[in-house]
Amino acid sequence: KLETFPLDVLVNTAAEDLPRGVDPSRKENHLSDEDFKAVFGMTRSAFANLPLWKQQNLKKEKGLF
């Protein structure tokens, strides 16, 4: 399991300012399950079932792209 970080560490943070080991294209993977659901309004599995373009739009909207 990946290390999780608080939302404010990941949202609207440039790649070079992210904690070590965080993939800038997969910031959402480093949210706790609770934060993930609070941000996206759905579970990880529901998010994973969305088309890629919709996932990317949601990530942009939430500052996690």
Rank of each mutant, 00 (worst) to 15 (best):
D35F: 01
E34S: 11
M42N: 00
L18C: 07
S45Q: 13
V22I: 10
F47M: 01
R20W: 11
P51C: 06
S25I: 10
K37Q: 15
W53R: 08
V9G: 04
P24H: 07
G63W: 03
K60N: 07
K59C: 06
L18Q: 04
E16I: 12
F40T: 00
G41L: 09
L64M: 07
K59R: 09
Q56Y: 11
A38M: 14
R44F: 05
K60G: 05
S45Y: 14
E34M: 10
E34N: 10
G21C: 10
S25G: 10
P24Y: 03
S25T: 15
A15M: 11
G63C: 08
D17E: 11
D23R: 03
R44K: 12
N29T: 07
L10Q: 02
K1N: 13
W53L: 10
E34P: 08
H30W: 12
A15Q: 10
V9L: 14
Q56I: 15
F36M: 01
N57T: 14
E61C: 11
N49T: 13
K62F: 08
A15C: 15
K54M: 14
G63L: 06
A14L: 12
L50N: 00
W53E: 12
A15G: 09
N49K: 14
K62L: 10
Q56L: 13
A48I: 09
G21A: 08
D33F: 04
A38W: 12
A38G: 08
K60V: 12
F47W: 07
K59P: 00
D35R: 01
F65C: 15
N12L: 08
P19R: 03
D17T: 08
L31Q: 01
E3T: 11
K62R: 09
K37D: 13
L10D: 02
R20V: 15
G41I: 02
D23C: 10
A48N: 12
P6I: 03
K54G: 06
Q56N: 14
N57M: 15
N57D: 14
W53Q: 09
T43R: 05
A46Y: 09
K37R: 14
A46F: 09
E34Q: 11
D23W: 04
A46K: 10
E16Y: 03
A15E: 14
N12P: 04
G21H: 08
H30A: 07
K59N: 01
S45D: 13
A48H: 13
R44V: 02
D17C: 15
Q55G: 00
V22P: 03
P24C: 07
L7D: 02
